[in-house]
Design a binder for these strands. Sequence first.
DNA 1: CGTAAACTGTGAAGCGGTAGACGGGTCAAT
DNA 2: ATTGACCCGTCTACCGCTTCACAGTTTACG
Lengths: 201, 201
Amino acid sequence: MHRGGGGASATASFYKKVMKTYTISKLARAFELSRSTLLYYDRIELLPASGRTASGYRTYTATDYRRLERICTFRQAGLALEDIRILLSSRGSSCAQVIEKRFREAGQQILDLRNKQRLLSGMLKKLASDDSTPTVDKKMWIEMLQAAGVADRSMSCWHREFERRAPDAHHEFLASLGISEEEIRQIRGWSRKGKAARDQD
Amino acid sequence: MHRGGGGASATASFYKKVMKTYTISKLARAFELSRSTLLYYDRIELLPASGRTASGYRTYTATDYRRLERICTFRQAGLALEDIRILLSSRGSSCAQVIEKRFREAGQQILDLRNKQRLLSGMLKKLASDDSTPTVDKKMWIEMLQAAGVADRSMSCWHREFERRAPDAHHEFLASLGISEEEIRQIRGWSRKGKAARDQD
DNA sequence: CGTAAACTGTGAAGCGGTAGACGGGTCAAT
DNA sequence: ATTGACCCGTCTACCGCTTCACAGTTTACG
């Protein structure tokens, strides 16, 4: 493609001059990772640095950049680094198997978490009833939200998401807390509207 | 609380003879924990053994049993051991705060996992289309979702979402699983209508 | 050109919540 | 008293990093 140069080493130095390379920290910043993370990826040979400078600094090329891009995508999906290594080195159906495995795993984790939430809300209900507070669950719940300091952004976001993805489940969940139908309608109302009436980011 | 009272007291030996005590492994088996776990709980003083035999073996009493019962309940809810320590030593509203914190955390984790699942199914779809090799067939897909514990509700939610975002892709996807046109029509039918998917399946 | 700041390398230890192995001491039954 | 089952404390490993410490290197500015 480009001119032949004068031998292999000349070509290498040509590339060194022309190709964009990254130092470890620059690459880290590009992906909002820490330097340590990339050091770690280098050590476990998930993303080995392509080369070193004369003084021993790691250099990363555009190819490394693209590899890291993929790694980050997979990590966002919660894949284990070992699985990512497999994915990066194999193409085809074995990829599907790994991804599918993770999908199942995530599904199971969701079930577990939901179960935990059930237990937790049970505990809260029990606490509230033990607690001389006669107004049962609704008060407890509201107290919970407010004491959380979560109040606004996270919780309304959570409700919106819940409502969008699984309206029925949302209803059921609220009902399980002993909240009245009317109250549920209100909550689901502003959940559907998106930007909640009662708080603005 | 003075406990593990040293030595050769008649009272101590009385209790030792009369009260039911557990060795560490028996207690572990009673709660389906490993011995290591209880050793760890002892070390971090979450569940210190009440006493020791003359030869240094840990002894656990019925009180310890009850404490461990509570610990296990909290752990099932996914609480961190440090939080459990707080819960066990405090009673009242600070309990609610800790539990509530965990509840929110779990909710966030569920959202994260769902998001990961979206990414993963995106990857699978892309793989399936790139490959044009029908590595994922209907049976596998359904198995996958069911194994994931995705209830019919969530499943129909997923279909609805797919139908809403990309009707053509939805059709294509279903076809790629080798599902008949008729069945596809059915699925897409209730996907569009929204709810009512539950009586099916 | 000098200096200070920001970078680089390596290696090791630490987190939580277990699981499991090790070498050796102790118990219950014979 | 001798088995064999149990138990002891201590150690290491796991994941995915992060933090530390310390020494050499590059870069920015004056």
